[in-house]
Design a protein around this nucleic acid. Sequence first.
DNA 1: TTCAAAATTTAAGGATTATTTAATTGAAAG
DNA 2: CTTTCAATTAAATAATCCTTAAATTTTGAA
Lengths: 223, 223
Amino acid sequence: MKILIVEDEIGIANFLRDGLEDENYSVDVALDGNRGLELATTRTYDLILLDWMLPGTSGLEITKQIRKSNKKVPIVFLTAKDTLHDTVMGLEAGANDYIKKPFQFEELLARIKVQLRLNVEEPTVLTFQDVTLDTTTHQVFKNGIEINLTKKEFSLFYFLLKNKGRVCTRNEIIKEVWEINFETDSSSLDVYINFLRKKIESGNSENIIQTIRGIGYIIRERE
Amino acid sequence: MKILIVEDEIGIANFLRDGLEDENYSVDVALDGNRGLELATTRTYDLILLDWMLPGTSGLEITKQIRKSNKKVPIVFLTAKDTLHDTVMGLEAGANDYIKKPFQFEELLARIKVQLRLNVEEPTVLTFQDVTLDTTTHQVFKNGIEINLTKKEFSLFYFLLKNKGRVCTRNEIIKEVWEINFETDSSSLDVYINFLRKKIESGNSENIIQTIRGIGYIIRERE
DNA sequence: TTCAAAATTTAAGGATTATTTAATTGAAAG
DNA sequence: CTTTCAATTAAATAATCCTTAAATTTTGAA
């Protein structure tokens, strides 16, 4: 994740850069408004952290310019301009958050994360070898050909695939897929593993769902 | 735009409601956490304004529940819990903003607008294959020929079309189109799916609205 | 306001599909 | 070799959906 800091007080800028880099963000710093606007418009960032009072173009002006060019990058003000009027103006100009100095770094970080998580789409497609599962459409494909799974089959396969590379115990699976706790005498799981294998492994001799005898099942790459 | 206020201090709740209604928002108020969670999960809001300390379910718990159910509705905390730790916790639980009491109404309003402007821009014309739906004129066309849909039929078709390519669960649909919570025994949805199919799929053998048995329905391109 | 038409909901039977149960066969571990 | 757990199959049960029709509610015109 790439963050642009536009801040003229070099001490604060460095403090922010170090703190954010510690959190594994990739950081660019602009020490004046013109440079900030230039970077903001010519490069792509996941978030822009913006002071208001800057030499050259002001933070407010930068915000307006960015929004004018229809960019949706989250903008977070970080400024000493702390009046109600300033705050409202900053937010109305297009900022996504407005933090007043002095600030606490942990809160800044939390607020940055809020902005970033909005832009992340959760992966809805799980894959294993030539099989893909899409939770949004509730479809499973093998080599591009759709395989029809029932509700239980889908939910069982989804659970195993979600935990690809890890053994899922029988109880775990039953608890999650059947949504009940104990049913030692039921062989539904066995039957459904069988259904799944028939539908998914048919065609080649691949053993996608492996049995860990006495424990449960696992989907993993073959050694 | 519809806003839910969850706030147990009735004075503040009324103040907020009046202020927001003056801004032409449609407002629901819940005076305790359980009611708040109930409304939040059974109805659809554009934003939820949340106190933390509440009788019954806490605001934090409500936030977690909403996010757990995968809802993206913006949540704004408005609370007297003003420590750094609280703020971070609230934001990490899934809130989009965190405003500390005492607050200024104009800032609250500006921050609400920030959240709401992110969610606008719904296209007015939706299309699928030879079918188009226009929300502004409330018309549906198939091959240029108008199909008359009733209010419910239109709203159901609109919901499915809006979510084209994604499975809509029966509960989701009922919640959105019928605006009620639970009605497991009602077959209205089935009946209306039937109506829609008759009107929209007539002519060719296309199966526009596909059934995902045990889950719900989906409109998607055929493979 | 009243009445008729239209829209919506409820209800029920039949058809289809999903899920569980049960019984048998097969395979691995001690 | 025996025991235990897993795989497979078939059959029974359960759940869901589709369709039709009738009952109820809403709407809009007279």
